[in-house]
Each structure stands twice: as structure tokens, then as C-alpha cells.
Measured scan of single mutants.
Amino acid sequence: MSGNGNAAATAEENSPKMRVIRVGTRKSQLARIQTDSVVATLKASYPGLQFEIIAMSTTGDKILDTALSKIGEKSLFTKELEHALEKNEVDLVVHSLKDLPTVLPPGFTIGAICKRENPHDAVVFHPKFVGKTLETLPEKSVVGTSSLRRAAQLQRKFPHLEFRSIRGNLNTRLRKLDEQQEFSAIILATAGLQRMGWHNRVGQILHPEECMYAVGQGALGVEVRAKDQDILDLVGVLHDPETLLRCIAERAFLRHLEGGCSVPVAVHTAMKDGQLYLTGGVWSLDGSDSIQETMQATIHVPAQHEDGPEDDPQLVGITARNIPRGPQLAAQNLGISLANLLLSKGAKNILDVARQLNDAH
């Protein structure tokens, strides 16, 4: 009898209710805020589980004197976190989706994509230029951005401005803007500013005609071990179906173009009346040469937790077992079709030249 009692006690200790789920994140304040929001949602869904947040620095956090596009290494903000995932030191990792490459290392998958916040870019102005827009900034004003995508589009749109690289986390960039006289304004992701509670610093939100956004911008991705079915089931509740389908289309477009950090590629997606609209573009580094096109596809946005595919093969690095396969494939095909259209119009040449120029500098 006593033996059975011990077995029952052991089973209770090993039951999922007692389990601590370890969540990996970057150390920056924004990353911690984003991770806290994901953990809060998981806690609400699984009140019996405990969650421990483990923060670590990544290569991208450490190399702050070089433009991201020049470092010449993929997975700048993800490699150390993936290493911890691989060694079973954490069970899942919360990322900004735009930091996750469209091809993940073997053994990993994006197990959830959370509801997207505003994906557009924002302009934050130096205190002396508050009330201005990019259009009304004085001639030769210097605007800071760490992104080739932003610089290429904005140089084309605002030729009277000069664009220079600015690195560091959000706090560091804002301090550089406010305390030094080098920059009249800087460009940042609206979602990051909003998550930090800095709505009052948003001086201008850039519309798609001015600057399309990065693939996955404004959404959070939760990376897990691809074979860890328990954790895949656990994080599945975080999937937002519309965000998922938009981001599958965007990531398929980028992957098929073979774009990345070192080339200016941008997108804009919208879901309306059962249609998914995808606009994508590529630019030369100075913005003088560009190709942009829009395509659409009829896609039914499923309700969360309709029964999805059981075999769960990944699409552009994403596993969404609780979302039907048909809409996911339709979104992926839309991204591939748009990429093929741009490639047929000469996108590869623009991107190759951009890559060579970026590598040469």
C-alpha cells in the first residue's frame, strides 16, 4: 500500500501541473516587456503551470559599433537563445518575429505568432524639431536608422535628408537623439515604442507609400524545439490566425527572394473581405531603383483552434497545428507568387547589386 502511495506522490510531482516552463529572452527592456506579455497570456491559459524567465545577451546586443547589415552573420539576435533551447536550458524563446530568419536551424520551429501590433515605422524627432515631419525637416538634416530597408525607401522619398546608421537598443538610440546634436530624427518601429509606453515620442507614423515595413514587423514569434510536442501544444494558444497568415505570406515572399538583413526588402499586408493583399518591394541601397507589386488571394481566416493538420510540417519556419492547413498554404503560395513576379521584373539584379555594395563598404 505504502509503495503505491509513493508512486502516486511521484506521479503528482512529475505531472504537468508541477512543471516549471523556462522562457528565454534577450536582456533589453523591450525584450523583457514583450516576454512578460507572452508569459502573462500563458499564465492565464495555464494557471497550474509556473513560468521562469531567463534573460541573456546576444551577438546583436554586444556589437554596437557596426551596422547590422555589415556584421555579416545571420541570427544576430537569436543564436545564443537557440543555443540555450538546444541544450534544454529553456523550453521556449520569445523573439520579435522580424529577427527570426525565414529558414531556422534544424530542430527549431516557430510554435506561435502572437497578435500583431502596429507594424509601421515611426519617426521620433529631436526636441528642437518636435512638430515637424520628415518632409518639413531642414535641408541636409541627419536621420538615424539601423535599417537598409528604411534608408533606401526614405532616401527616395525625401532626397533633402541624409540617413546615417544608429545602433543600440531603444533606450540607447533615444538617448543619442536627445543628448547629442548629430541626429534631427530617428526611425523606429511603432510597436516597440508603444510597448515601452513611449507613445508621446511618436512624431509621425510612416504610411506604406512612404515606407513599407519589415517582414514580420510588429509581431512576436515564440520559438521552440520542433519535436517538443508538449510545448508546441502549450504555445499553440498564442497563435493569432490573421497575423499568422499575413506573416506566412510575408516570410514566403522574403524567403523566395532570398532577402535578408543586408538587402532592402519591404512588405505591406492587409486582410479585407476574405482577401489577403500582399505588397512587396525591393530597392537599391540608395533607393534610386525599385520594383513594387501587389497581389491578392482569397483566404478564409479560420477561428482559433479549428482542428489543424496533425502532421505539422513547417511552413517558412512556422508550425501551427491548430490552424487549418489550406489557408496557410494559400498564404505561402501568395508570397511565392509575388516573389516570382518581382524576380521576373529584375528584382534579383537589384538585390545582387545591393548585396555587393553593402559587402564592399
Rank of each mutant, 00 (worst) to 15 (best):
D359L: 05
Q356Y: 06
L85F: 04
Q194R: 14
L148S: 06
Q50P: 15
L315I: 01
I291T: 09
T319I: 09
I318L: 05
I113L: 13
Q153F: 00
K115V: 10
A354N: 01
Q180S: 12
P105Q: 10
N340I: 15
L68M: 14
P313H: 06
I336T: 03
T243H: 11
A214Y: 02
V235P: 01
E179V: 13
D311Y: 07
E89T: 10
V353H: 15
T172R: 10
D230C: 01
K115G: 13
F253V: 04
K115I: 08
V202T: 14
A55I: 08
V90W: 05
K79F: 06
V316R: 11
T41I: 12
P47R: 12
V267W: 02
L245H: 05
F51P: 12
L206I: 03
R251G: 04
V94I: 07
W283L: 03
G326Y: 12
G131R: 10
A84I: 06
T59D: 14
D311L: 04
R251E: 04
M196R: 05
K115A: 07
H300V: 14
A122D: 04
V142P: 07
F253K: 00
Q296D: 03
V103G: 12
S45Q: 14
L170H: 09
E310M: 15
T109Y: 04
A122M: 08
A55P: 11
A249E: 03
L343T: 10
P324L: 10
G168I: 00
S147Y: 04
L285D: 14
I53G: 05
F183I: 14
H239G: 02
L193H: 04
A331T: 09
Q229T: 07
L154M: 09
R251N: 05
K345N: 12
I166N: 08
V38R: 03
D311A: 15
K132V: 09
K157R: 10
L177M: 12
D230L: 03
L238E: 04
R201N: 07
A331E: 03
T58S: 10
D359V: 03
A191L: 01
R150N: 00
D240K: 10
A354R: 02
T190C: 14
T269M: 05
T133M: 13
L188F: 08
L42F: 09
T279D: 05
A303Q: 03
R321N: 06
A330V: 15
P208K: 04
Q292P: 07
M56T: 13
T279S: 09
I248S: 08
R164I: 09
D65C: 06
A214I: 04
G111H: 00
A252H: 01
L278N: 02
K98Y: 01
E209P: 15
A266T: 07
P119I: 02
C211Y: 10
K87W: 12
L148V: 12
G218P: 01
T66R: 09
L134W: 06
F77C: 03
N200D: 14
F51G: 09
A152R: 12
V267E: 05
A219S: 09
E293H: 14
R251C: 05
F163G: 08
A320V: 11
A185G: 15
G346V: 08
G221Y: 05
V222S: 02
E73I: 07
R173L: 04
D359G: 13
K74Y: 07
F77E: 01
E258W: 03
P119H: 10
L334C: 14
R251Y: 03
E179A: 14
K348N: 15
N118E: 14
I54H: 05
T109H: 08
G216A: 03
L64E: 00
L137H: 05
L351R: 07
K157S: 11
Q204D: 02
S337C: 13
I323Q: 15
L68R: 11
L341P: 04
K79C: 10
W198K: 11
L81W: 09
E179M: 10
F129R: 06
M295C: 04
Q332H: 15
E162M: 12
G274I: 01
P138D: 10
E293Y: 07
K43T: 13
D121M: 03
T136M: 14
Q229G: 14
P208M: 12
E135L: 12
V237E: 05
G60P: 03
N322G: 01
Q180H: 11
F51S: 06
G274L: 08
K176D: 09
K43Q: 10
G216R: 02
W283E: 02
A303W: 02
R325H: 13
F51A: 07
I318A: 00
A219C: 02
V90Q: 05
L177G: 01
G221W: 03
C114T: 14
L97M: 07
M56I: 14
V282M: 08
K98L: 02
D99F: 00
S288Q: 14
V237L: 13
S75M: 06
T279I: 13
L137W: 02
R251F: 03
K128D: 09
G203H: 00
Q194E: 06
S262N: 15
C114V: 06
D65G: 09
L76Q: 10
R201I: 15
S37W: 13
L104K: 01
E52I: 12
V103N: 09
S146E: 02
P105G: 12
R149P: 02
L232F: 11
T59N: 05
V222K: 02
D286C: 08
H199G: 09
K74G: 09
L206T: 06
D240G: 01
Q204P: 07
T133S: 09
T172Q: 02
H239T: 14
R355Y: 08
M196F: 14
D311R: 10
A67E: 00
E209M: 05
Q155V: 10
N88H: 10
A151W: 11
D233H: 13
T172G: 09
I248T: 05
A339E: 02
T78Y: 06
R201Q: 09
L315S: 14
E306F: 15
L170T: 07
Q204C: 00
A214F: 06
L341S: 06
E162W: 03
A249Y: 00
L220Q: 01
L254P: 06
M295N: 01
Q275F: 06
N88C: 13
L334M: 13
L245A: 14
K79G: 12
L341H: 06
F158N: 12
P101R: 00
R149M: 00
T190I: 15
T66L: 09
A303F: 15
A44W: 10
A112V: 07
S165I: 08
V222E: 06
L244F: 02
P302R: 05
A40T: 12
P47Y: 06
L220F: 07
E210L: 13
N358I: 15
K79S: 14
T66V: 14
H268T: 01
G192W: 01
E135I: 11
A330Y: 00
V94W: 00
T41F: 08
E73V: 08
A320P: 02
H126A: 11
N200W: 13
P106N: 13
H256L: 09
A151F: 10
G274N: 00
S141K: 08
A252W: 00
I166S: 07
K115D: 14
I205T: 11
E80C: 11
L254C: 00
T190R: 07
L342T: 07
F77A: 04
Q296I: 07
D286N: 14
V202A: 10
Q296H: 14
T298K: 08
Y46V: 14
P313V: 13
S75V: 05
G216H: 00
T298I: 02
L343I: 02
P47D: 09
A226S: 08
H256C: 12
V39D: 01
M56W: 08
V103L: 08
V39Q: 07
N169T: 08
D312F: 05
I63P: 12
M56S: 14
V265I: 08
D230A: 05
T145V: 10
D230K: 09
P106W: 11
E310L: 10
F125D: 02
A84W: 06
H160W: 10
P127F: 10
M212D: 00
L104F: 10
Q328A: 06
I318S: 11
A40P: 03
I323Y: 10
H95P: 01
P105T: 11
E86A: 10
G259K: 15
L244D: 00
D286P: 08
A44E: 13
R251A: 00
N358Y: 14
A122N: 12
A347M: 06
Q356K: 07
L104E: 05
S37G: 08
T294K: 03
V235T: 02
P101C: 02
K348D: 11
G218R: 02
D240P: 03
G259H: 01
L245R: 03
P327H: 12
M56K: 14
S284I: 15
Q50T: 10
H207F: 08
L338R: 04
Y277W: 03
L85E: 03
I205M: 09
N200S: 09
I53P: 15
V215C: 15
K74C: 05
H305N: 13
V143A: 13
T102P: 10
I231T: 08
